[in-house]
Structures are given as C-alpha cells and as structure tokens.
C-alpha cells in the first residue's frame, strides 16, 4: 500500500464528507425556504442575502444553547444515540461512485472511496443500523414519549427494510452485480434502470422516505402526538445531530436513488467528449444535479402529503409494498428468462 493511495483516499473522504455536510446544511435552509414558497410565504430571509447565512446562524444557536441531560437518563447511551445517528449517516456515502475516473499526473483516480463488491448491501446494512441511534436515544431519555418514538422507529424501519430489500433484489436481477460502480457503468447512454424497474423504483423511493423518517413516514418524531418523539428530551447540539443526520440521510438517499435508478453520473452525450477529465467533471456535475432534484422532491413531498396513521403505515408496508415487490421479482424473473 503506497502512501499516495492513502493520501488520495484521505482527500477524497474529506471532500465527500465536507460536501455532504455542506449540502445537508443548505438542505435545512432549502427546506425552510421551499416550505415558505409552497405556503405562499418567503421563508427565512434576514440572515444574509436571501437568508443564505441562516444555516450558520442555526448552527451557532444550537451550539451555544444549554445542554440538558435528564436526571434519570442513562448518560452514556443518551450521548451515544445522536452520535450513532450522525456516524451512520456519514459513513453511507463511502461506496457511492461520484463520477468516472479522473486522470491526474498520469494516474487514474477513482471518484469512489471504496469499490467493495457488495456495495448496495453495505448501504442497506448501514441504513438499517441508523435506527439504533433513534432507539438508543429514545430509550435512554427515560421518557414515555421518547420510548414510543423509539418503538415506532424500530417497527417502521424493519417493516420497510423488507420491501426495500425485495425491490433491490429485482434490481439486482437486472444488473447482475452488487457493485455500485458496475451498476453506474451499465447505465451508460439511456439504459437507466428506472426504465427497466419502474415499480421497483417506486417501492424503493417510498421505502427511502420511510428509512429517512421523512414526512409521510415521520411517525418516530410525530410532534402532534408524541411531543418530539425520540428527541423530546434532547437539547443543544445533540438535538442538532439528530436533525442534521436526517438531512445527511436525505442527501445520501438521493445519491443512492440517482445512482441505482437514474444513471448515476451518466449524462446524455457522454460518449461525444473524448477528454476523460472533462467527462469526469461533467459526470460529477450531472450526478449532483440529479441529487439536488431528488432532494427537492423529498422537500416537495414533505410539504404536500400529510403523515400516515400508524395502522395505515403498517398496512402500506406489509400488505401492499411487500406483495408488490414480490410480484415485481417474479415478473422481472419471467421477463429475463423469456428474453434469453
């Protein structure tokens, strides 16, 4: 293992981490701005021009607020909860291919932290780990509303993970590989997977909403009935971590959706450009445009669709999405066999 490899990966990791934190920061502002637009308001506009310094102001506010740990809370687990949430949100982006290979100083640089050959499953595993942050935090708060939020988070995540996994299986039958890099390469031109797997995409989309606890599925933090759900007892930056982790998850989910179903870094007319570095830069830009569109979609859905009732949530997960994804697998299998 040479030193350049390590330096290259370190630079890449810090760049990705920085970019995902930056995008998560500005997603909080975009959420509030767009919420305003959807409701005929203008949103925050006082901190800097158009309110672009609002995330900094929020950050300073959260950092300087008083930190409260409830007397009867388990201190270690209480701190572990938000840290784990943040940690799992940050490590998901490791396997996403951000663009085609760059060629710098005669060396090819892969714009991906780790090309492990079980890439999708890695994301799937880390996402399923994300619920521990909520569960541990909710349980350690020693508060019935937090506990109810934690329980809801657990059952919701398990229910929707099943449908998500089954929709991924149908996708894998089409692609024949688990590596996100190979999936990206396969989608060159207009061979986007969403064209071959529309139902799978729909199921995956719904499940990503459920896994990130975004609005139609935000029952763990449902403020109307559970005060604040799992983060009722949290204050200061520990609360900030929970809120921030949600936005990082939105970013990563958008990246995964774009990579798996919408061609990743591929863009129309990619083969016309011969310079690989130009292709790489344009590819990264294309991927980020797709990601930003998905983030906008997440926000758009949040301010359109009201929250599910708990029984509706379970019914949708178990009675509709899981059978639908199994049918999707069967149909996909049949089509593949008939084509051969």
């Amino acid at each position: 293992m040479d030193i350049y490899f390590i330096i290259e990966k370190l630079i890449l990791i810090s760049a990705i981490l920085g970019v995902s934190l930056l995008i998560a920061m500005y997603t909080t502002l975009a959420e509030r701005k767009f919420a305003g637009f959807f409701q005929d308001r203008v949103g925050p506009n006082r901190a800097g021009p158009w309110g672009i310094l609002q995330p900094l102001a929020d950050g300073v506010k959260l950092f300087t607020k008083e930190e409260i740990i409830p007397t009867n809370a388990g201190t270690f687990l209480f701190v572990l909860g938000p840290s784990l949430s943040m940690f799992t949100a940050c490590i998901t982006s490791a396997v996403i291919p951000w663009g085609p290979d760059l060629t710098l100083f005669g060396k090819t640089v892969a714009l991906q932290v780790a090309d492990i050959n079980v890439g999708i499953l890695y994301i799937f595993g880390v996402v399923s780990l994300g619920v521990y942050g909520i569960m541990i935090g909710g349980w350690a708060s020693n508060n019935k509303f937090s506990l109810l939020g934690a329980i809801r988070a657990a059952s919701q995540n398990i229910s929707y993970e099943l449908a998500m996994g089954l929709s991924i299986i149908a996708l894998l039958m089409v692609t024949g590989t688990l590596s996100l890099r190979e999936i990206s390469i396969q989608q060159e031109g207009w061979h986007w997977n969403v064209l071959y797997q529309p139902i799978g995409f729909l199921i995956f989309l719904i499940c990503s909403f459920a896994e990130t606890n975004r609005t139609p599925f935000d029952l763990p933090e449902c403020e109307t009935e559970l005060v604040g759900g799992h983060h009722t007892e949290y204050s200061s930056m520990k609360l900030g971590f929970y809120l921030f982790a949600e936005y990082i998850n939105v970013f990563v989910s958008s990246a995964v959706l774009a990579t798996l179903y919408f061609g990743g870094y591929n863009f129309p007319g990619m083969h016309l450009i011969s310079n690989p570095n130009v292709v790489a830069i344009l590819g990264v830009a294309a991927l980020f445009i797709k990601i930003l569109l998905f983030i906008f979609f997440f926000i758009w859905i949040r301010w359109t669709i009201p929250r599910f009732r708990y029984d509706q949530l379970m019914k949708l997960g178990w009675n509709i999405l899981i059978p639908l994804s199994i049918i999707n697998i069967v149909v996909t299998g049949l089509v593949i066999i008939l084509k051969q």
Partner: peptide, 17 residues
C-alpha cells in the same frame, strides 16, 4: 451485518422496550 445487527437485534430491542 444486515440480518443480525440490522434486523434481529432491532426486533429484540423492540420487544424489550
């Protein structure tokens, strides 16, 4: 990782809560 940590232990914790 997925099955034991992500699903079974979550279920066990869920039941314990």
């Amino acid at each position: 990782f997925i099955v034991y940590m992500g699903a079974i232990m979550v279920l066990i914790l869920f039941a314990m809560m």
